[in-house]
Every structure is written in C-alpha cells, then in structure tokens.
Amino acid sequence: MSKALIELIQRDFGSAVLESHSLHGDDTVVVELRAWKEVARFLRDSPQVSMDMLTDLTAVDFPEREPRFEIVAHFYSLTRGHRLRLKTRTGDSEGDEAEVESLCEFWASANWLERECFDLFGVVFKNHPDLRRILLYPEFEGHPLRKDYPADKIQPLIAYRDIPNIDKVAPFGVDEGMAFGRQTHAQARHDTDDSRVN
C-alpha cells in the first residue's frame, strides 16, 4: 500500500519529486518548492490518497545546506488509514527568502501550525490569512529554533506598549518591570541601557 502512495505521486509529479524513501516505515516524499501546494491539493483531493488530516507541519533547520529549511508535513487519511510525510526545501543560507505556499485553504489545522513555524523558524507562508507570531510575543527578536540562535540568548526588555483607548496604565515606566530577575548578564544590562536612550 505504502509504496503505491509514493508511486502515485511520482507518476503525477515525476519531475517535481526530488527524492523519496521509507526509512523506519515512514513513507516520505520530498518535492520541489514550486510543486508544494499542487502536491498537497492532490493528496487531499485524489480519491486514492484522500489525506483528510494534516496532523503536523514543522520545519528543520540545516544551516550548512543551500535551501536551508526543510518544511515537513505529516498527513493521515482517516478513510484509508495511511500516512505520508511530505517535505520541501526553502530559504538561502542566511535564512532569508524562506517562503512557501500556505496550505490553509486545504486544512484548517495549517493555520496555527504555519504560524508556529513562522514564529520559531521565520519561514514565511504566502497567502496565509493571519501570519503572526503565536508562541512568542510580537517584539521578540529572531527565530529561536534556527540553529544560529543561541539557546542562552537574552532578549531585550520591551518598551511599554502604546495602545490607544486604554485608560488603565501600568504604574511603571519603560525601564521598570519585566526583568523577571534573569537579566543579569552584562550584555543584557547593556541592551537595557540602549533601550532607555531610545
């Protein structure tokens, strides 16, 4: 069954399939970036495949490769009971121009999964209806799951948000509060001083 799934995709998208394997029993197809959305549409609509559930979508960062990010989606078909992992590659070595078509119009689950992927990796999903950060706050600098983001990096203090029409204002200024007792590195103090100047 499972082999047939890979063959089906190879038959219809032969030129776009970069590689395929069934390591540890997980059927995997890597497609070119331009075919990402079309293959996804095929997976959902083809009666022989009918992947009705997008169970997971994430990315993996390989900074030394040229299309740097691997976008990994896992599909499951409730009706047919088979699974498939679909991958594509995007982004240059700097991590810029990492763009991929959104799958939101096919599966509702893509909405939050893609937002998370954008948040943590900085991969932009084109035509996503609401591409905002989801797990982190808007002022967060960088994308933490990239390999070049140091795990112990300290984020700068964020300024008080200037939101109109809110009568209640917190009784502290820009440079007070929000320290959480962890901003003790010399670097962080330095950053804080900068933000005070601004």
Binding site: T55, T58, V60, D61, V72, H74, S109, L113
Partner: peptide
Amino acid sequence: RVRIRPPCFLITA
C-alpha cells in the same frame, strides 16, 4: 531536532 506534535495545540486552535 525533536518536534513534539501536541494534540492540545491543534485542539486549542
């Protein structure tokens, strides 16, 4: 890379 596919995340969505 360790990716956890959390059921709650999609349910909360």
